[in-house]
């Protein structure tokens, strides 16, 4: 009796996994195929082309400003290189800023209970605010400060917006480290700062890596803030991607997909680079439980 149910349970599980898998992987599949489709196949009359009939690298060449084939309806040549560089600068800068300030804040809260019991929640509250609500006032403020369309402008806002995440995540990582490890370092002759850097931070390397990656991806994919706060100088990739449309060709799905695919690469590289730090078990053996 239980055997038959087990069989059904297995089918059910497989079904759910398949559905979820499809939902998650479909966009990726779509982008990949679209990136290699020539213009004719973007919205063909005869229905969806699940696989490109005519694989092409045109879209990629287009976004790097070296289109040879101008297509049926002419579109202006475009070069995404600048936008990509801007994205890298802004996202990296914002991440570094958030990590620096956030990690120190988190340590202060975790170890010294800085700010009393409510500070962590107050910080998290900052994030509860949908950015869209503050974006116009922010623009006005930036205009006044002459930060519109500048690298620093983006870095500051990216840092500020992801700072609560860093605090929240790093705080829980710091809480995992027994306070005696910092104390041992202090008794061994370190200053408070020394204890943090030499004894505690090595314990949370995994946490730092995971948090940094998470925050980087948030900043990297930001569209709204960049849209409002930049125009030509510091236009980031997501904004640029949005701009890949023309009166003639409409939405240029192909190049958009190609750029989308290219934009996956930096976060992926970062992820691979820090992979070895995402290892649990660094504190095993240090402390008896």
């Amino acid at each position: 009796m239980s055997d038959r149910l087990g069989w059904l349970r297995g089918i059910g599980k497989a079904l759910i996994v398949t559905v979820v898998g499809v939902v998650f992987l479909f966009p990726l599949y779509w982008i990949v195929t679209m990136a290699f489709k020539p213009q004719e196949e973007w919205q063909p009359i005869d229905g969806v082309h699940w696989v490109p009939d005519d694989w092409t690298l045109e879209n990629f060449k287009k976004i790097f400003g070296r289109a040879t084939d101008t297509g049926f309806f002419e579109a202006a040549p475009t070069d995404a290189t600048n936008a990509i560089v801007n994205s890298i600068v802004a996202a990296t800068g914002g991440t570094i800023l958030a990590m620096l300030v956030g990690t120190l804040t988190a340590y202060g809260i975790a170890r010294y209970k800085a700010g009393g019991g409510f500070l962590p929640f107050q910080i998290l509250q900052l994030r509860m605010f949908p950015p869209v609500a503050i974006v116009i006032p922010l623009l006005i403020m930036y205009a006044y400060l002459e930060l519109v369309d500048t690298y620093w402008g983006l870095i500051l806002i990216y840092g500020a917006v992801t700072f609560p995440f860093v605090v929240w995540l790093m705080r829980s990582f710091f809480q995992e480290v027994p306070r005696e490890i910092a104390e041992a370092a202090i008794v061994d002759g370190c200053s408070q700062w020394g204890a943090l850097f030499k004894a505690v931070l090595p314990q949370v390397r995994g946490g730092l890596a995971a948090t940094a990656l998470f925050v980087f991806i948030l900043n990297w994919s930001d569209f709204l803030l960049a849209l409002v706060l930049t125009s030509e100088q510091v236009e980031t990739a997501p904004v640029f991607l949005n701009g890949l449309q023309s009166a003639g060709a409409g939405q240029e799905y192909g190049p958009q997909a190609a750029l989308g695919l290219v934009l996956i690469i930096p976060p992926a590289i970062l992820g691979l680079a820090i992979q070895r730090y995402l290892v649990r078990g660094l504190t095993f053996g240090a402390v008896k439980r």
């Binding site: 490890i181 090595p202 660094l282 240090a286």
Partner: peptide
Amino acid sequence: GDRDIAIMFQNLALYPD
């Protein structure tokens, strides 16, 4: 750190890394 006194904690607190 300046007292020239050392302590061995109950939970040892060795540096795991």
